[in-house]
Amino acid sequence: MFSLLDAWLKGAVLEVQEYVRLQIATIRGVFSRPFYFHDVVEQFEQIGIGSLTVVLLTGFFTGAVLALQTGITLDQFGARPFVGRLISASMVKELGPVLTGLMLAGRIGSGIAAELGSMVVTDQINALRALGTDPVRKLVVPRVLAGFFMAPVLTVISDTVGIIGGWLIAVFQLRVASSVYWTSVIDGLYLDDAWMGLAKPFCLGYVIVTIGCHVGLRASGGTQGVGRATTNAVVASSVAVIAVDFFVTRLMITLLY
């Protein structure tokens, strides 16, 4: 029993140590040569453009359902015209970043873990090293940069379509005048909220991609190992999205308010 716990603890410490080491190597890779520009562009496209559809859909329906639900609650106080305020505040501060994060964890985190994992088990990572190319610079750095910069862009897009979804419901279902809705949306947006809503996705994008890379690069044991790595990456990065969201919120509240 004790030795089991001991082994588990050792494994966990090693895992964290390797994760930190990968991050250090990645950050060093961002700021020094060689820098594989072409791969960076490719990953921006893969991660950014590739995730657009799912982000648009989730953003839109989240905003719409939010309008439906809050419409009922607000009616109890006769506050239906304020629906826009609620939607913009919750989309921008919480739902936009977190839901985009979760979608990216499912789409990007798993994809990266599967791709890098199968490169590990088929010796392609070894071949890369043998050819004199650093896998961290060639594979990890472009993905981390793309995740870090594209997550905020995608979040802003998600926020926007969410507010538009809410507007459609507000106008056609709740019968709130368009101008009332938009005025309320603007009223609900404080500059501090915008900062928070923008800071979060940078952290989430970074965490999702680094976890995907870390888990993928440590895959072992054939195709089965790749499957395991993919599942682990999705689970770990989804949990990390929620956890990091909490800690960033906590930090920003101390800093901003």
């Binding site: 010796d123 392609q124 090293r129 043998a130 050819l131 650093d134």
Partner: peptide, 22 residues
């Protein structure tokens, strides 16, 4: 690993399973 990159410039290896980048 950084120092090794220099050494590997003069080495070529054919991996058992090929290990082509797919």
């Amino acid at each position: 690993e950084t120092e090794l990159m220099q050494v590997r410039m003069d080495l070529g290896m054919v991996f058992q399973e090929g290990a082509l980048f797919d």
